[in-house]
Structure formats: structure tokens, C-alpha cells
């Protein structure tokens, strides 16, 4: 029998309120007509209008998307190939364990350590080539590095779930290696690849720490912009920007749920 008592329900609702109250406050004060202070002075959408004429913010939005798209494409390709490589070949137990370890490394270590390691490594590389000045290239490399592991883990679990029956059947029907990969394995694991790519995309959009450590002055992303802004002064414009980011998150979460549900029904 499943039930939840009054006490549990109250606690749960209070916890939900605790999670949402600050976010709702941001949305609430983003339509407040006064620039300073938190006293309600009437409804306005001015702050939203102003956002779209602020070139720094628009630039940051473009950077954020560019970074997310490029890093997601690279990490999805690399992560998928890696997952197939790990799952579909008879590795000895020892190599499988070390592969597993290297795959879990970016997932478990705190992101600030990866960020610090990248700062130092790019510092060394800068001695050789000016490509590695803080900026978009460094950020893409940083993002791909933690995304690969997540993509590979998601795709691998799909490979596991698919099993070997269909691939064996294809072999029995004389499918070649390339035919098998292109027409059997890849279509079978496509839901896993899409899920992995969406996870990678969301992780990139959401990331602050890696970007913050590797960004240059002309590759500021939205989270970095918001961070720098609120350290100086909190304005309703920032609330408006945050509210839009929040709405984008909501849409992304709902979209991801939809897609994963559709694939599950297949």
C-alpha cells in the first residue's frame, strides 16, 4: 500500500517551495518596474526589451550556443565510437577495468580539478602555439573532455540493452563489418546516441566552472556573464536574463523527456 501521511506531504511541499521560491523570486522581480531595491513598483517588460538591444548579452548567448553545439557534435561522435569500441570487442578483464576507470574519471572528479588541470596544460601549450590563448578553442576542448565520458556511458548502456541477437542474425546473413555498423548497430543504438547528445548539450549549456577557467575576454558565456554581473550589482536586467535561461531549461527538460519517451515506445 502506498500512502503519504500529512506530515510527509507537508515536508515535501515545503521542500519543493524551498527549491522554487528563489527561482520564482527571480522571475517576479524581472518584471518589476524599479531598477533598484526589491519593492514592487508595477509590472513592466522593459528589462526583457533591453536585453535584446544589449550586444554583450547577445554575444554571450551566441557564444554559449556555439560552444554547446560544437562540443556536443565532437563529443557525440567520439563518445559513440568509444562506447562501441569498449562494448563490442572481447577485451581482457584488466583492460576492460582500466577503460572503465578512464571513462568514469571525468564523471567523478570535481570539475574544478579538471578546470585547474586544463588551465595549467593550456599554459604549457601556449609556449608552443598561440592557439591556446584562453578562448573558444580551450572551452570546446574542456567541454568535450567531460562530455565524452557521459555520451559513452549512455551509449554503452544502450548497447548493453540492445544485446547481440540482431547483430548475430545480420552476420549470419553475411553482413560485412561496415554494413553491420551502418545498417544494424547504429540504427539500433540511435536512441542512446540521441540521449547522450542531449545530455552532452545540456551539460555544456549548464557548465560554469570549466568555462570560467578557460574563457577569454571575447568568449564569455551567459553563466559567466551572469556571475560577473551579480558580483557587482544585481539588476532587474539580470533577473530577466536569468528568467529566460530558466525558461530555456524548462523547455529543454520537457523536450528531452518527450524524445526519450518516444524512443522508449518504439
Amino acid at each position: 500500500m502506498k500512502r503519504s501521511g500529512v506530515v510527509i506531504s507537508c515536508l515535501a511541499l515545503m521542500t519543493m517551495a524551498f527549491l522554487y521560491l528563489p527561482l520564482l523570486a527571480v522571475a517576479f522581480f524581472s518584471v518589476n518596474a524599479t531598477k533598484y531595491g526589491l519593492v514592487w513598483k508595477g509590472f513592466t517588460l522593459d528589462w526583457y526589451v533591453k536585453l535584446f538591444s544589449n550586444e554583450v548579452i547577445l554575444g554571450a548567448a551566441v557564444n554559449t550556443l556555439e560552444l554547446a553545439v560544437i562540443s556536443t557534435v565532437i563529443s557525440t561522435v567520439l563518445g559513440t565510437i568509444l562506447a562501441i569500441g569498449i562494448d563490442r570487442f572481447p577485451w581482457s578483464k584488466r583492460s576492460a577495468t582500466s577503460l572503465d576507470m578512464i571513462l568514469h574519471l571525468p564523471v567523478v572528479i570535481p570539475d574544478i580539478i579538471l578546470a585547474a588541470a586544463l588551465v595549467v596544460a593550456f599554459g604549457m601549450l601556449r609556449l608552443v602555439s598561440s592557439w591556446f590563448e584562453p578562448g573558444m578553442l580551450n572551452m570546446v576542448i574542456g567541454h568535450v573532455t567531460f562530455q565524452i565520458a557521459f555520451v559513452a556511458l549512455v551509449v554503452r548502456s544502450r548497447l548493453d540493452a540492445v544485446g547481440k541477437d540482431i547483430e548475430e542474425a545480420a552476420r549470419d546473413l553475411f553482413a560485412s563489418n561496415t554494413y553491420l555498423l551502418r545498417h544494424v548497430t547504429l540504427p539500433l543504438i540511435l536512441p542512446g546516441i540521441v540521449a547522450g547528445a542531449m545530455l552532452a548539450f545540456t551539460l555544456s549549456l549548464d557548465d560554469f566552472v570549466i568555462s570560467f577557467f578557460t574563457a577569454g575576454t571575447d568568449s564569455v558565456t551567459l553563466p559567466i556573464y551572469i556571475y560577473a554581473a551579480v558580483r557587482r550589482v544585481v539588476t532587474p536586467e539580470i533577473h530577466a536574463l536569468s528568467t529566460l535561461v530558466l525558461l530555456a531549461t524548462v523547455l529543454l527538460v520537457i523536450g528531452t523527456e518527450r524524445v526519450s519517451r518516444r524512443f522508449q515506445q518504439r
Partner: peptide
């Protein structure tokens, strides 16, 4: 529950300024 999980931590942190 999933939405706050994916909401950016900078926004989630500074939002307490308001509360």
C-alpha cells in the same frame, strides 16, 4: 524535480540574494 537539477548553478545561487 528535474528542472532545478538542470538549472544553472550561478542563477540558483544568486537567486538567494533576493530571498
Amino acid at each position: 524535480l528535474i528542472i532545478p537539477f538542470w538549472t544553472n548553478m550561478v542563477i540558483r545561487s544568486y537567486s538567494w540574494f533576493l530571498i
